[in-house]
Structure formats: C-alpha cells, structure tokens
Write a protein that binds this DNA or RNA. Structure first.
Lengths: 335, 335
DNA sequence: TTGAAAGCGCTAACAT
DNA sequence: ATGTTAGCGCTTTCAA
C-alpha cells in the first residue's frame, strides 16, 4: 500500500487528451469549454481521483482564499456554535477555515497568527481586543484583514462582530440588584490577558457602584471548568453573598453543583446567574438565569465581514445585543 | 489602508543582502548559515513581517504537511475536547489542522475530504467507519493516510483511534440490567448514516436480549439537542420504562430536564443514563450516570497515528476502554 | 558558507 | 473552443 503520487493536472490532461489550460478552465470556468470535452475531462478527473493542488493554485492566482481563526480553545462550548456558524458561512462562499488555539496564552496568539498566514490565511478571525504590542504591530505591518469577535470596541480598534461584554454584564448585575440583592459576589474567568473577562468584571462593578447600599463582597477568578468553579464557590460563599454572578455558564453551573453538594439551596440561600446561554444553563437545576450571547449570528457576521474585507470592501462592525434569559436560579433574597 | 503585497523571500534577501537560498536555509536549517548572516536575516524578517508562503513551500518540497479533520459538527461537546487534543498534538509537531464539518450528512463528507485535500491535507482524521462507496473508493484510489476515530473496527477497515461503541453501550445496558431494571427504553441519536449510533443501539439490544425477562419497551431516535431529547423523553415515557438509556449525555440530560418538567422523579420514577461524560452529565440534577469516553487520549492518539502514517510508518490502531461513571441518575427500580 | 538556477502544479494572458 | 507559455514563491541540488 505505497502512497502513490497525487495526480497532477498534467496527468488529467494526458488522459483526457487536451491541454492543461483546458483542464483548468473546465474546473474554474466550465462554461468556457465544450460539453463533450468537459465530460471527457470529468471522467478523467474521476478516474484519477484528481484534486487540484491548493498551493499551486494559490500561487498562480489570488482567487483562492483561506481564512484562519485563532480562538482560546475548542473545548469550551462558549465558542462552539459561533465557530460552527463561522465555518458554515465561509464554506458556502467556498472558503476554507483553518483553526488554531492559544490555550488562553496571549503570547501564543502571534505564533498561531503567523502559522496560519504561512498556511495561506489571507484573513483572520480573532477573539477579543486586548493583545500584546508585538501582535498589533505584526497585524498592522502586514495589514491583514481581520475581524474581532466576542467583544466590541470603538472603530479605531478594528472591525468587530461581537457584543459589549461590559454592558452585558452590567445589565445582568442591574437585574440582580433590581431583585433586591445587595451583597453580591462574582465568579469570573481569569482576567489576565482576557479582555472579555475584564470587561465583564468592570460591568458588574459599575452596576454595583451605582447602586446605593450594594457591595461586591467577593470576587474570585477561576478557569472555565466546573471543578474550579466549585472551588470558587466555596471561596466566595464565605463572604455570605445573597447572589453570585457567574462570568460564564460553566462558572455559574459549577457553582450550583457545589452549592448543592454543600447543602446550600439555590435560589433559596443564594441566587446564581450565568453568562453565555449554552446548554449547560438549561440542564442545571435550578436552570440558570443567564445572558444570551448571539453566538450563531456573531459567527455568521464575522464570516461576512471577513469575506467583504477580502473582497476589498471596508465593512462596518456588527454589534449585537444580548438579552437576559430568566430562569430559576435567580430570585429575591430571603428577607 | 490598502493591503500591501505580502513580502516574499526575495524582499527579505534584498534587505539582508544575501541570496534567497540562504534565507531558505536560515529558516529551515539554521545551523547551515553563519551566525552573523542569520542575525541579519532574522532582523530583515522582523522588519518586513515576513511569513513564508505555504503554497510555494508545499510545492517546492514535500516536507510541509497539513492534516484535515472532518467531523459532523463543532457544536457538540462530544467532539470538542478530542479535537482540541488532536490539534494540540499536531501543533507540537508543527503541522496545522484544517477542519471541515458535514452536519451529519454522509454525502457531504466526500466533498469536504476533497476540499481539504485540495487545501493540501496529506492526511485525514475521520469519524466512524460507515461511509458511502464513493468515499471509500476515493480514499482508496488516492491512498490517503487517514485515521478513523470515535469508533473501532477490524484492521481491514482501517486504522482506528477510538473505542468500541457497541461494547461500551452493551456494558452500560448490562449495568442497568444488573440494577434490576427490566423495562428499558433508549433515546438514541439518529442512526441513519451514523455507525456510532447504530452500534450503541446494537449494544443495548444485545444486552437486553441476553437477559431473561428484559425488554426494550421503546426506542426513540433524536438529534443531539436538549429540546429534541425532551420530546423523545415524552415519547418513550409513554411505554412506562423503569430506565431510559441515553445515547449521549445531551440526550440523557435533555430527558432529565423534561422529566423534571413533567414531575417525573429521576431516579425515583425512572432511571436515566448518559454516554460520553461531558460536563453536562455533572451539572444535570441528578448527576448522570454515564460512560466515560476517553476523548483527549483518543484525539492525541489520532494525531500520533496520523503523524506516523505521514512519516511512512504503518501504525496500529489504538483502541481505548471506556468506563462507567456512577452518579445519581441510576438506581434500582421501585419494587 | 553561500549563490545560481531548475522546477514544483497551477492559472491567466495571449495565440490560434 | 483550445493550446502555448510565462510566471507565482519557495526549496534544493550543484557549484563555487
């Protein structure tokens, strides 16, 4: 079972008895070749199992595009359906997606960006706004079309397909305050090098500061894992909050699980909220009051923006609204 | 802000004052160029923001590899951490991953495979064993190195990095039977064109048939979505089972949510089990008794196997064991 | 240690 | 409607 050389356009040309140019036309612009010839060519392609060589194509023409996405990790449902939508939209446009992950390491992002560009990515989808100076410089130097997602910002920071994390978190905190809670705790993600987390924290702080008598009694930062969220629950619970705002559904759900294990009733003893509205929030018991992030719309918009940029346009940011999804984990505090 | 042409190796050569061959060496085989020259070259590379062009590289040499993965969807946690591990392992070896999704459409797989190969994929990661004849023929004709995952099979069906779905499902069903259940229902995924689902169903059937007095009172097939799983719960619940075997955690968790909504207590009125051991099973209340699928190990093994194949080796399949994770959603039936 | 030059597979003028 | 041919950006002999 030796791996034979992939067939080239020359092989197809030989079998079909035409020139390579005709093969190329039959593939890229079928109308320009006679039906009979086309049929012969297609037969030859099938017989040989020919697939054009992307490298050669990319080199000979600039029509063939690839885009890259650099995300923290695929193992977080927070990005899953957005990425799926992104890739579907690209696929419809005949553009392939390359994915690379950083594991939430900001230094890793530039390496991955370079790797993707080497691979032929002519556009990039990046998460968030905050990045090391070296990364900004590179992006700027090479002037790579790129779209920023899962966040929002002023136009001079780039083109976004996302939402305002601070405003969203603020609205959630206001909602919690409106229920009568005054002693609030927050379990956030790790804020270092993660602007989305930092913004969510800032939003919660802003709402609390604006509310008389309200206080952020505890703030824990935790990786986006159920287990860690449980530990964070233990930590903030010591401060006796009446409500815990989770920086993500994983964090909220993890807190609920640990609360249950500790015999702390939700929302009886403490209310808990989530963020993102992934499946986890529905399965949690009680179901998590959370904030819906329009992942699918965002992913699709990111693809459209990138495609428009690649086509030479200068599309505007698409900023989405988030909405609070009321479920059972948030209730007024015990009086 | 016009998008300037990417710098080429010629630009770097000019700036560094050496030939392109030396640049190439400095990048691919740094030891072969004098330290002083190398430093000058690196400075030039940084100054220009140069990244080699993959297409040109791939064409000029066969050293540069890319591999492709074709999965049903990224929006299912069932694949998420396995894919993440797969990509990390590849990344360590300096190869990039291309991802394409089929949306569970078997016909789409061949299209995606061709697209990935056109993109330069010299190896593939595929899910499961069942595929249309045309796909098999193409794979065979082109003799593409590929590894099959999330499943297991005889050596003549290919090289696997996976597990035996039938055996795993059988063990789960036996476990349920051992608890004393006799009227069993199953909520499976959609079996058409999905060998993993078909195998899981077969495993459950086999266990039940081998057990005196046991009966599969209902079998519903449902998409892997919480909402649909709820509807499937309603459907099978009508047959009055004492235990419902979920074909995945999403299915099990969805059933639990709907049961709760219907006032049916789990595991009091009915036991429910999951499959996959994703976060959902832990958050579910009661937590789902489920079957751990070694996603991370599988993803990593798939990468290693593929890399070995690309290096010309003929690695063996890596078949993993699964294990039942006992939690709270399974209990003996009410007597 | 470095340079010159051929060639990888394809597309896009330009011819016919 | 089809063929000829020049290059796209790189790596790799082969020479110096």
């Amino acid at each position: 079972m030796t791996q034979n050389q992939p067939p080239t356009i020359d092989d197809v040309a030989k079998v079909a008895g035409v020139s390579t140019a005709t093969i190329s036309r039959a593939i890229n612009d079928p109308d320009k070749v006679a039906k009979a010839t086309r049929d012969r060519i297609n037969a030859a392609i099938d017989e040989l199992g020919y697939t054009p060589h992307f490298g050669a194509r990319a080199m000979a023409s600039s029509r063939f595009k690839t885009v890259g996405a650099v995300i923290p990790t695929m193992a977080n449902a927070m990005f899953a359906s957005g990425m799926q939508a992104f890739q579907e939209a690209l696929s419809e446009a005949g553009v392939t997606m390359l994915v690379a992950t950083t594991g939430y390491d900001p230094e890793a992002e530039l390496r991955q960006i370079r790797a993707l560009m080497t691979q032929g990515a002519s556009g990039l989808m990046l998460i968030g706004t905050e990045r090391p100076e070296a990364t900004r410089r590179f992006l700027n130097l090479r002037n790579v079309p790129h779209v920023l997602t899962w966040a929002a910002g002023p136009a001079d920071e780039g083109v976004f397909a996302g939402f305002d994390n601070r405003r969203a978190a603020k609205s959630m905190a206001e909602h919690v305050l409106a229920m009568g809670h005054r002693k609030i705790a927050m379990i956030a993600g790790i804020s270092a090098g993660n602007d989305r987390v930092a913004e969510r924290i800032a939003g919660v702080r802003a709402a609390i500061e604006a509310c008389d008598g309200a206080e952020l009694v505890a703030l824990a930062e935790s990786p986006y894992l159920l287990q860690n969220a449980g530990d964070a629950f233990d930590e903030v619970w010591a401060a006796k909050p009446t409500a815990i705002i989770g920086g993500s559904d994983v964090l909220g759900a993890g807190a609920v699980v640990r609360a249950r294990a500790r015999g702390v009733s939700v929302p009886g003893d403490v209310s808990v909220t989530g963020f993102d509205d992934i499946g986890l929030s529905l399965v949690s018991a009680p179901a998590l009051t959370t904030l819906r992030v329009p992942q699918i719309e965002m992913g699709r918009a990111a693809a459209e923006i990138l495609l428009a940029q690649l086509a030479g346009g200068t599309p505007k940011s698409a900023i989405f609204e988030t909405e609070i999804v009321e479920r059972a984990s948030l209730a007024p505090p015990r009086s």
